[in-house]
Structure formats: structure tokens, C-alpha cells
């Protein structure tokens, strides 16, 4: 089972968390084109390997945080704050 280290609660089992998908996606300006909005809402890199994603400790403290993780091995490289940029 995958383990994630919640920045507030420490290492817990994966089922305590909910994944919120790819992180660091910038919201476009209100006057952005349909194409930009479509890209923002739906299109993803979906990488095979290193992926930066957001997780929430749903059955713990309820806080969001960021994770750098490998989508093949599921190895967690780093856990960092929701407001921080990717290490």
C-alpha cells in the first residue's frame, strides 16, 4: 500500500487521502479564449513517471498539500506545501 507523509499528521496509509489531480495549473484570465479554457479544464500532461499532484488528508486533518510522485513505481519523491512551487 502507498504511504503518504501528511505535513501535519505524518506518514499515513493512502486510503486516508483523496487525490485532487495535477497541481500547479494556472487559472487563465477571465478574457481567455475558449481554447485556453478548454486546455485549463480538461487537457493534462498525464505523464508516465514524475507527476506533481495535490492530495488532501480527507480522513485526517483535511488539509491540502502537494506531492511529487512516480506514476509507474508510485514512489513518493517529495511532499511540499500547497502554496509552494515544485522542488
Amino acid at each position: 500500500m502507498m504511504h503518504l507523509a501528511c505535513p501535519w499528521c505524518g506518514v499515513r496509509d493512502e486510503p486516508e487521502f483523496v487525490c485532487g489531480g495535477t497541481t500547479h495549473i494556472a487559472r487563465p484570465a477571465p478574457d481567455a479564449s475558449d481554447h485556453e479554457w478548454g486546455e485549463y479544464l480538461f487537457f493534462r500532461d498525464n505523464p508516465k513517471g514524475l507527476h506533481h499532484e495535490r492530495w488532501r488528508h480527507a480522513y485526517g486533518c483535511g488539509q491540502w498539500f502537494n506531492v511529487a510522485r512516480d506514476t509507474v513505481t508510485h514512489e513518493v519523491f517529495s511532499v511540499y506545501g500547497i502554496g509552494e512551487s515544485a522542488p
Binding site: M1, M2, D13, E14, P15, V18, C19, G21, T22, N46, K48, H51, E53, T71, V72, T73, H74
Partner: peptide, 13 residues
Amino acid sequence: DLFASYAQRGSFS
């Protein structure tokens, strides 16, 4: 498994 994955195995949970 509700997180992105290319591993051809599923979570025990």
C-alpha cells in the same frame, strides 16, 4: 484507484 497510475496493479484497499 483514484490517482494517476501506469502501474498494472491495483491497490489492496
